[in-house]
């Protein structure tokens, strides 16, 4: 894992000095190729590379799964169909049958993009793109911004009623409206930070444990090693759950923009 390699690297770098714990080392982004487009930095870094690898895996998973398109599905095809129906059901449940179908491709892609980015971090020597707050933040702001624009597009200025809670005395309005606006503005922050923090925390925990695996004497080092084995399983689970939460909240926001509460 990167975690091992980073631990080894930090040890190698300070072979003479005391080994120093640096669990955030493997979140560092390194540019491989410096590129720029109209003054905009479009360099290719390890984060970008692993994003592509994750996308490639997602695409391969689906194309391999539906290859042949047998009426009696094999294992991979069953898995692909299950994954497809899972997202379809989620979209149709929350957004509604008709609008859910309309937004389904975006939600589907978002779910598998996030899921494969989450899981790619568990491969040895890899990088987790979703552990970068800027990436989750980009997605979260695009989603919430899109929901806002879509809400105004659908309802015109009536969409402003969204920020006025119903069934509240008029006297409380000056208090409630700012709270609603703040909670709306907090949406992209909480959405991005939730995913980023989950991914970062899990991998940091693994890095700390690997540090002890490498530095403790052999009679004690099996303990953190066993923990990392268990925790890798937990990380897979968390990767799924966080992708699910990210997508389900996206559905909820889109639903708010369409149906207004």
């Amino acid at each position: 894992m990167t975690l091992i390699s980073s631990a080894i690297a930090s040890e190698a770098a300070q072979a003479s000095a005391e080994p120093k714990m640096d669990p955030l080392h493997h979140f560092e982004v390194h540019k491989f190729v410096d590129l720029s487009l109209f003054g905009f930095d479009i360099s290719i870094s390890n984060s970008v590379l692993w994003m592509w690898i994750a996308c490639g895996f997602a695409f391969l998973f689906f194309t391999q799964g539906i290859k042949g398109g047998k009426q009696v599905p094999g294992r991979l095809q069953s898995l692909v169909e299950l994954g497809y129906l899972f997202v379809l059901e989620m979209a149709e449940d929350i957004i509604g049958k008709k609008d859910g179908r309309k937004f389904f491709p975006y939600i589907f892609t978002l779910f598998y993009f996030v899921l494969f980015c989450n899981l790619s971090g568990l491969l040895p020597g890899s990088f987790t793109p979703t552990s970068q707050i800027i990436i989750t933040g980009t997605f979260a702001s695009i989603i919430v911004g899109f929901a806002l624009i879509f809400g105004f597009y659908n309802h015109g200025l009536h969409y402003l009623k969204f920020f006025v809670p119903s069934g509240i005395p008029v006297l409380l309005m000056p208090l409630m409206i700012p709270i609603e606006i703040i909670s709306f503005l907090a949406r992209p922050v909480s959405l991005s930070v939730r995913l980023f923090a989950n991914m970062t925390a899990g991998h940091t925990m693994l890095a700390v444990m690997f540090f002890y695996v490498l530095t403790l004497p052999i009679f004690a080092s099996w303990l953190p090693f066993g923990f990392t084995v268990v925790f890798t399983g937990v990380e897979i689970f968390i990767g799924f759950i966080q992708a699910y939460i990210f997508t389900i909240l996206t559905c909820v926001y889109i639903n708010d923009a369409i149906h207004m509460h």
């Binding site: 930070v193 939730r194 923090a197 989950n198 970062t200 925390a201 968390i238 759950i241 699910y244 939460i245």
Partner: peptide, 9 residues
Amino acid sequence: AFVEAIALY
């Protein structure tokens, strides 16, 4: 997942 995320804030 929500409750855990609170801790991670």
